[in-house]
């Protein structure tokens, strides 16, 4: 592989922080969820790259990414279930509509 490891890392860092940015600016619950998916994806790239370039003796990063994908799926399914439940209540999935909480 002749692309330096730093390029991959910077790519994933950019992806991660774009996710963070999205999480901050968006208020739609599903979009928030998608921002989180971006972040998780960036993390997976990190693991894989480290594994491939630096520590190829064992497949620790590989397996971590594998498990992380599975967990992300589980997390998303529960989150979607909750979002649908919220939608049934108020017919909206904007976080601001939900947050009628008083402080």
């Amino acid at each position: 592989m002749d692309v330096p490891v730093h390029f991959f890392l910077m790519l994933s860092a950019a992806m991660f922080f774009i996710g963070v940015f999205g999480f901050i600016i968006r208020r739609n619950m599903i979009t928030l969820l998608m921002a989180v998916e971006l972040m998780l994806n960036a993390v997976n790239i990190n693991f894989v790259v480290f594994n491939r370039f630096l520590y190829p003796d064992y497949f620790e990063g590989f397996f971590f990414a594998l498990f992380a994908i599975a967990i992300a799926a589980a997390e998303t399914s529960v989150a979607i279930a909750i979002i649908i439940n919220v939608y049934r209540k108020i017919r909206s999935i904007e976080a601001d509509d939900v947050a009628e909480m008083k402080h």
């Binding site: 910077m10 950019a14 991660f16 922080f17 963070v20 940015f21 901050i24 600016i25």
Partner: peptide, 14 residues
Amino acid sequence: GGLVAAGSGLLLTI
């Protein structure tokens, strides 16, 4: 706010 937070984080990480 998002730009500042994410941007500074990205900068630091890079």
